[in-house]
Design a binder for these strands. Sequence first.
DNA 1: AGAATTACCTGAGCGC
DNA 2: TGCGCTCAGGTAATTC
Length: 275
Amino acid sequence: MAAAQEVLVPELPEVELTKRRLEQELAGRRVAEVVTRAPKLRLPIPGELATILPGRIIRGVARRGKYLLFDCETGWLIVHLGMTGFLRFLSPPSPPGKHDHLDLVFDDGSVLRFHDPRKFGIVAWTPDDPLAHPLLAGIGPEPLTAAFDGDYLFHVSRSRRVAVKQLLMDSATVAGVGNIYANEALFRAAIRPDRPAATLTLHECGRLAHTVRAVLEDSLRQGSTYRVAEDSVAYHPLEFAVYGRGKGDCTRCGGTLEEIRLGNRSTVFCPRCQE
DNA sequence: AGAATTACCTGAGCGC
DNA sequence: TGCGCTCAGGTAATTC
């Protein structure tokens, strides 16, 4: 079996698990104060949070792709974890450390803390429907819903010359599929990642839509626990068939996995099993 | 419109 | 021990 691989990047399953965890911890809490320790992550942190949020109750947490959406009564706090972002609920809170960029302090003293060494995360605010926000408006169907199927994938891949892996990783095609799960889904579907998208048959699109769903659901099941150390956080280690295993052995045929770059992203596949 | 490229950012790993 | 280099990668923004 494949060696356990540390998941460093929060992909859709990790974001979904974060959503479920935070919903339990935050629902009904009233914000007392907002503490910002960095002016910007990948985009500026809205300064108006400090005046808008105090007094508001977190009514619930939703997810769209890899975006977390916090219902704050008069609007929505939008958070993307980027590559290294992590949200922790602390009660009571510890002193903030390096890379702790944002705290929502609740009226009972507990804190929601955003930690992100790489600052690839995003914090935004909208008083309107968050799904209409520019960051979310163009995102494709959720991969775990019926809207994402072989017919859809076949339809959007016609006349597209890009590699099918890049099409999969385009958030306009489907929400929340990053490098790890694009690699895994293509291996399970036995489709070479560098195939021009338009060359996929309807049958192959059906297989791929199915394996995208399968790898995400597998991770949702396996990643149900978190390791949270004193000063570091990580997601549950998962096992991958190809991701991070370039030049390793194919778990299916025993051949040697090949590593290439597509769109400047590490891409691993089995040249014998995937065509 | 689609495709390709750049930018953002820090920690880890490497060769010297 | 330290320096400089490369790599990791989501996605918005930019360019062709």
